[in-house]
Structure formats: structure tokens, C-alpha cells
């Protein structure tokens, strides 16, 4: 009696798919805007095929069985693509759990006269689909994480523009939080630009850094040290009053670093170091005149 369950479900494949589709189409959360019904049918069909072709009475109660590798693969694929398409976790959850309803309904019809077996089979199916559900969620979140990671990379890339502000002076405005991964990117692009341009002075502007805690300060100090190790000087500018306050309150020692409140004053300091002078043209001519 028992051993017929897998075969029974395989026989009823058509019905299962139909039922599942019916359940899905009936659900209020159906996203016809994200996926056409044909696509949905194709996806569901593939999954049910894979599941039923591998299902035996043994592995029905063993979701960890390697028999289900194909099923997991398909599920992962569906889940990841849904995450990228912008489905909500709930919508993805409903998708897989409505399969459970379809399977349950079929066994219920077939095993109406044997409540004990029905109960057993029903529990097994429930467990199996739950396990599929867990995987679906895991992969779904992973898919989302991937999207986030990609965006983080993109942000890191676009957010480290090293600017040549003068012959021999480069500046790098930092926008956003400075974590250790970001610090490495900042350091790398700043130092590379210093080498490429042969600039003796680098200005790190932190006007766009929302907060400076001891960790961020440590990253700044590291960047300054690395710049010095290369043989260039590093000035930190854009120290807002709030930043000055937290730095002192936290007892962070920035005394070995040249710090300026604005990029302008940092530039002025850099000019002094390079023994450059910026003067108003008019003034120059008037002093010339008076000299004559």
C-alpha cells in the first residue's frame, strides 16, 4: 500500500500541475506584471517534473537525499531569478507552498479510505516541501545579497575619484562611511594616483563622511601613514565641528596629522609646502607700478 505513493503522484502529474497552477493563479499576490502565466506554467512544470521523476517512497521522507539535487538546482535558479526580478519573499514563499496544497489535495482524494496512511503521507509531503521552502528562502536572500554586493562594488568604484587639483597636489573627497574594505580602495587609488602623477601632496577631504569614530580615525591614520611611507605628505581636510568634537571626546590622537577645516585651507597649506604663492593679478601690477 505504502510503496505506491511516489508512483501514485507520478501518475497524477498532470493533475498536480493543474491544481498548483490553479492555486497560484487564485492567489491575490500573483504578479502578472513580473511574470506571464505561460512563464509561470513552464517554471512550475519543470519543477514538478524534476520532483516527481526523482521521487521514491524512500526519499519522500528524506529531503536531504542527493536524489533531489536537480530539484534544488531548479528551485535555486527560480528563487534567484525571482529575487532579481523584484518578487517579494512572500510571493516566492507562496509559490512553493502552494505546491504543497496541490500535492495534499491529490493524496487526500486518493487515500480517502485510509486515514492512517493519509496522515503519514501528508506529514512526509509537508516536511519535504518545507525543506524546499527553506532552500528557496536561503537562495532568495542570497540573490538579494548579490544585488546589494554588486551595488556596493559599484558605489566603491565610483566613490573614489582622485582629483589633480594642482601640479603636484592630488585630492580625494570621501563621501560616505569609511569601513576597512573602503579604506583599502581609497588608499589604493590615492597612492596609485600619487605615483602616476608624482604628486608630493595628497589631500583627503572628509566633509562627506557622516561620522568619525575611532575605527574610521584609525583608517584615516593608516592612509596618512601609507602616504608618508611612499614619500608624500597627506593633509586631511573637511573637519566639521561635530567631527572635531567626537574626535576629542573619543580621545583620538590626530596630532601627527595635518588637519584643516576646509579643502581651501588645505590647498593653501599645500601651496606653502610647495613654496607656491597665489596672488591677485591686479595687486601684482599695482605693486609693480609703485616699484617703478
Amino acid at each position: 500500500m505504502k510503496k505506491d505513493i511516489a508512483k501514485l503522484l507520478q501518475r497524477k502529474k498532470k493533475q498536480i500541475i493543474d491544481l498548483w497552477m490553479k492555486n497560484q493563479l487564485a492567489d491575490a499576490s500573483l504578479r502578472e506584471d513580473l511574470m506571464s502565466n505561460e512563464e509561470l506554467l513552464e517554471q512550475s512544470d519543470e519543477l514538478v517534473n524534476a520532483l516527481l521523476s526523482k521521487l521514491t517512497d524512500d526519499n519522500l521522507s528524506n529531503a536531504e537525499s542527493t536524489d533531489f539535487d536537480d530539484v534544488y538546482e531548479i528551485l535555486s535558479g527560480i528563487s534567484i531569478s525571482r529575487a532579481r526580478q523584484g518578487f517579494s519573499p512572500r510571493e516566492t514563499g507562496v509559490y512553493i507552498f502552494s505546491l504543497k496544497d496541490a500535492l495534499q489535495e491529490i493524496v487526500q482524494q486518493e487515500l480517502r479510505n485510509d486515514p492512517v496512511t493519509l496522515y503519514e503521507v501528508s506529514i512526509k509531503i509537508s516536511k519535504l516541501i518545507d525543506s524546499f521552502g527553506v532552500v528557496t528562502f536561503e537562495t532568495f536572500i542570497k540573490g538579494r545579497e548579490e544585488v546589494i554586493l554588486r551595488q556596493t562594488d559599484e558605489i566603491a568604484e565610483i566613490s573614489t575619484p582622485v582629483i589633480r587639483v594642482w601640479d603636484g597636489i592630488v585630492a580625494l573627497p570621501i563621501i560616505g562611511t569609511l569601513d576597512s574594505a573602503r579604506t583599502q580602495v581609497v588608499m589604493e587609488s590615492l597612492l596609485q594616483e600619487i605615483v602616476d602623477t608624482g604628486s608630493g601632496i595628497a589631500i583627503l577631504d572628509i566633509s562627506g563622511v557622516p561620522a568619525v569614530d575611532s575605527l574610521v580615525a584609525q583608517h584615516l591614520i593608516k592612509t596618512v601613514s601609507a602616504t608618508r611611507l611612499m614619500g608624500a605628505e597627506c593633509i586631511i581636510s573637511g573637519i566639521r565641528p561635530e567631527i572635531a568634537q567626537t574626535v576629542v571626546h573619543l580621545g583620538i590622537d590626530l596630532s601627527n596629522i595635518v588637519t584643516k577645516s576646509t579643502l581651501a585651507s588645505a590647498l593653501k597649506h599645500a601651496f606653502t609646502l610647495l613654496q607656491l604663492e597665489v596672488r591677485r593679478k591686479q595687486k601684482e601690477t599695482s605693486t609693480l607700478k609703485s616699484n617703478i
Binding site: 589604493e188 597612492l191 596609485q192 605615483v195 593608516k222 601609507a226 611611507l229 614619500g231
Partner: peptide, 15 residues
């Protein structure tokens, strides 16, 4: 005077 240190070397030494 040590000259021409590679950026990656400088970053590594600091770390």
C-alpha cells in the same frame, strides 16, 4: 632615502 615604494607595499607595511 628609500624611493619608489609600490602602493601595495606601503599599504601592507602599514597594516
Amino acid at each position: 632615502v628609500v624611493v619608489g615604494m609600490q602602493p601595495a607595499v606601503a599599504i601592507t607595511l602599514i597594516e
